[in-house]
């Protein structure tokens, strides 16, 4: 296991310089009130998600959530080029929501953040609540419901509705999460609001494009190969029409 890193991600200079614009806030960046409020929300969210998922998946919970969290963790490590010349990596909030549903998706994302904060110091412990709030609640929960509304209004069982929903929801969730991060940084007095918003938005409008493309590709693959694995599978005739008609 020692040399898989080199083969998977080449840390470009950009990644070295701008990882913190990638929404993982470190310890010491948020003030006491902001930390407390976001921790409170995050604990309530985690408790509800655990409860819901346990009711939904029964004794499948531990193995399924475990491997899916490992999946998101691995997917986040892959760099890919974003149109415009930079490179980025997946955040995966909306992808988790679309594939696993809002509660399981949120739980999986939370588990990923806990492991990143506790073992890899990628994002702090005191700000874990804020990170869960930004990317678990806004990114996954918000992203899932935005996707669902869009997909329902454009045709629930058509690829057109699905693709629009996924693309717009994944871009929007990343951008809104970055706005939330900027507001938290400003409320804590770490970075002035105007600067935080400019830097965060400017960077994440671009990052969001990459997120949208990759999320769209990944869901299109699942849609083609195993649509039954989607949380909201499309209703289709069991066999392709050409076979049914014969």
């Amino acid at each position: 296991m020692s040399n898989f890193a080199g083969s998977i991600f080449r840390g470009s200079l950009h990644e070295m310089l701008f990882p913190q614009l990638a929404l993982h806030i470190p310890d010491g960046f948020l003030s006491l009130p902001v930390s407390l409020v976001t921790w409170g929300i995050a604990i309530a969210l985690i408790a509800t998600a655990l409860d819901r998922v346990k009711g939904e998946r029964q004794d499948q919970t531990v193995p399924l959530m475990g491997v899916c969290a490992a999946f998101i963790f691995a997917a986040q490590m892959i760099n890919f080029p974003i149109p415009g010349g930079t490179s980025g990596h997946l955040l995966g909030g909306t992808l988790a929501g679309v594939l696993l549903g809002p509660w399981a998706g949120t739980l999986v994302m939370t588990v990923v953040f806990i492991v990143q904060a506790a073992l890899f110091q990628d994002g702090g412990l005191t700000v874990l609540g804020a990170n869960v709030f930004n990317m678990g609640l806004i990114g996954t929960f918000g992203g899932y419901y935005l996707y669902k509304v869009l997909r329902s209004s454009l045709g629930f069982n058509s690829w057109r509705g699905m693709s629009f929903g996924v693309t717009i929801a994944s871009w929007t969730s990343v951008v809104i999460a970055s706005v939330a991060t900027a507001i938290q940084l400003a409320l804590s007095g770490t970075v002035p609001l105007a600067v935080a918003l400019t830097a965060m938005l400017g960077w994440h409008i671009l990052i969001g494009i990459g997120e949208a493309i990759i999320t769209l590709m990944a869901t299109s693959y699942v849609w083609k190969v195993r649509p039954d694995l989607l949380y909201d599978p499309p209703q289709r005739s069991p066999l392709p029409r050409s076979l049914v008609q014969r």
Partner: peptide
Amino acid sequence: TGNMIGSLFI
């Protein structure tokens, strides 16, 4: 990359 992620999810 997109297809790989979809395939890895399955």
